[in-house]
Simulated scan of single mutants.
Amino acid sequence: MRSLAKTAALSALLGGAATLSACGGLMDNEAMYQEFASTCTTSFTAEGGPAEMAKPFCDCSTAKVREQELGPMDFLDEEKMTAIGEECGQEVADTMLGA
C-alpha cells in the first residue's frame, strides 16, 4: 500500500514537473498545485491504485503540498514527496478501514 501510494504521488509530481518544463518556464505555485491536483487521480489509478482511494489520497496530497508551500524544486525532492505520499496513504487507509 505504501509503495503504491509513494509511486502514484511521485508519478503525479514528476508529470507536473515535466509539464512545467515543457512550458518553457516556471508557473506560479497556485497553477502548479492545480496541475498536481488534476493529474494526481489519473496517475494514482494508472499506477494500480484503487479508484475509490484516488480522490481522498489526492485531496490529502494536494493539501499537504499547499500547506508546506512546496515549490517546483521541492516536487523533485524524492524524500519530501515520499513522506507526503506515505502519510496520505496511511491516512486514507486508516479512514477506509475504520482504524
Results as ranks from 00 to 15, higher is better:
2 R>E: 15
3 S>G: 04
3 S>Q: 14
3 S>W: 00
3 S>C: 09
3 S>Y: 03
4 L>I: 05
5 A>P: 00
5 A>R: 03
5 A>G: 03
6 K>R: 14
6 K>L: 07
7 T>P: 00
8 A>F: 01
8 A>R: 04
9 A>W: 00
9 A>L: 12
10 L>W: 09
10 L>G: 07
10 L>M: 11
11 S>T: 12
11 S>P: 00
12 A>V: 10
12 A>Y: 02
14 L>C: 10
16 G>E: 11
16 G>W: 03
16 G>P: 02
17 A>T: 09
18 A>D: 11
19 T>L: 15
19 T>H: 13
20 L>S: 12
20 L>W: 10
20 L>K: 04
21 S>W: 07
21 S>L: 13
22 A>K: 06
22 A>V: 04
25 G>H: 14
26 L>E: 14
26 L>Y: 07
27 M>A: 14
27 M>Q: 13
28 D>H: 12
28 D>Y: 13
29 N>E: 07
29 N>F: 11
30 E>A: 15
30 E>Y: 06
31 A>W: 02
31 A>K: 05
31 A>C: 11
33 Y>G: 08
33 Y>S: 10
34 Q>S: 14
35 E>R: 06
35 E>A: 15
37 A>Y: 10
37 A>W: 06
38 S>P: 00
38 S>I: 09
38 S>L: 12
40 C>T: 08
41 T>H: 13
41 T>C: 08
42 T>R: 12
42 T>P: 00
42 T>K: 12
42 T>F: 06
43 S>N: 09
44 F>T: 05
45 T>Q: 10
47 E>N: 13
49 G>H: 03
50 P>C: 06
50 P>N: 08
51 A>G: 05
52 E>D: 15
53 M>N: 15
53 M>Q: 15
54 A>F: 09
54 A>Y: 08
55 K>Y: 04
56 P>Q: 05
56 P>N: 06
57 F>Y: 08
58 C>R: 07
58 C>M: 09
59 D>A: 10
59 D>L: 11
60 C>K: 04
61 S>M: 09
61 S>G: 08
63 A>I: 05
63 A>Y: 01
63 A>K: 04
63 A>E: 10
63 A>G: 02
64 K>Y: 03
65 V>P: 00
65 V>L: 14
66 R>A: 12
66 R>T: 12
68 Q>E: 07
68 Q>A: 13
69 E>C: 01
70 L>Y: 06
70 L>C: 07
71 G>K: 14
71 G>Y: 05
72 P>R: 01
72 P>S: 13
72 P>N: 01
73 M>L: 08
74 D>W: 03
75 F>G: 03
75 F>H: 01
75 F>W: 02
78 E>A: 13
79 E>S: 11
79 E>V: 09
79 E>D: 15
80 K>D: 04
81 M>K: 00
81 M>S: 01
83 A>G: 02
83 A>P: 01
84 I>S: 06
85 G>T: 07
85 G>W: 03
85 G>P: 02
85 G>H: 02
86 E>I: 10
88 C>R: 02
88 C>W: 05
90 Q>M: 05
91 E>C: 03
91 E>S: 09
92 V>P: 00
92 V>M: 01
92 V>H: 02
92 V>G: 00
92 V>R: 01
95 T>F: 02
96 M>H: 10
96 M>R: 05
97 L>G: 00
98 G>W: 01
99 A>M: 13
